[in-house]
Design a protein around this nucleic acid. Sequence first.
DNA 1: CCTTGATATAGAGTAAACTCTAACGTATAT
DNA 2: ATATACGTTAGAGTTTACTCTATATCAAGG
Lengths: 155, 155
Amino acid sequence: MSYSIGQVAERTGLSAYTLRYYEKEGLLPFVQKNASGLRVYSDSDISWLSMIECLKATGMPIKEIRQYIEWYKEGDATLSKRLELFRKRRLTVMQELSKLQKILGKVEFKIRLYEKAVAAGSLQAVDGSEEINQLREELFGDPNYFPEVEEKKAV
Amino acid sequence: MSYSIGQVAERTGLSAYTLRYYEKEGLLPFVQKNASGLRVYSDSDISWLSMIECLKATGMPIKEIRQYIEWYKEGDATLSKRLELFRKRRLTVMQELSKLQKILGKVEFKIRLYEKAVAAGSLQAVDGSEEINQLREELFGDPNYFPEVEEKKAV
DNA sequence: CCTTGATATAGAGTAAACTCTAACGTATAT
DNA sequence: ATATACGTTAGAGTTTACTCTATATCAAGG
């Protein structure tokens, strides 16, 4: 099947502006144009977009995604570079997952705190309480925790 | 304890530029200045920074963090607004976690694919294979999956 | 043929979150 | 007391990823 830019925009949730921008940035080197210069997207282009969105979701900037696509175009000589790239992405995603788990714990602590505060009609009445302090201790240990700095200390 | 801007930068991993920027944006309304105009940070300011970094990690923009801080300054009248804010943050983080889990699956699929390709010395030799196609099917169903669009369909 | 709507290009504009510069004041160790 | 490091402000600059504008061409129905 083949698709117009509008159809691809509809299907992917990206705007036509964004699709042209991606192409200009070298992320979609395989999109064809017809005799009148209109873009014609194939199913393969849709797959590429799906992969691009995946890499973007791992926190990868557009420049690096272009690098991956250039490696792809260079063929089997770059297989191990691409493997290494995906391994790095896996590490990034796993770190982000564990960071977000901790963040979720902190947010849930705040929800419990504010549920109590709303019930009591006052934040001060509950913030220093035994129960809340113990919970805070369990969740954080150090109440002022800066993960970025901890990582540097660990290295 | 009290700290200079440089000490806070060291401790939090944020630059002094960023700390001043946060203050200008209304995120740190409690930082004091001494007689000569130098900033003096307290432990409470460090706690606020820890909370700000937490909210930022949930994907919250600075404008909305300022809103939260303004609600805090308004006192107990805004308790339920703040509770609602944290509940929304919890939802956002949970959605991001589940998105990242899916992304991780896709990245791990690519790693397996490229491990085989590196071993075979060729991507084509493995990409269409039974084993890989089955794995792809199990992992994705639809090979071109656009979560943002799916969400819209679901609503 | 004409209108309407989609698409083309080049290039300007936007938003967020920093990041830095310039010119000047403060703190402290020799 | 003076060099050096650290801090102040206002405001300009940067980066990323879009997002839009202006102007022109293309496609399809009446």
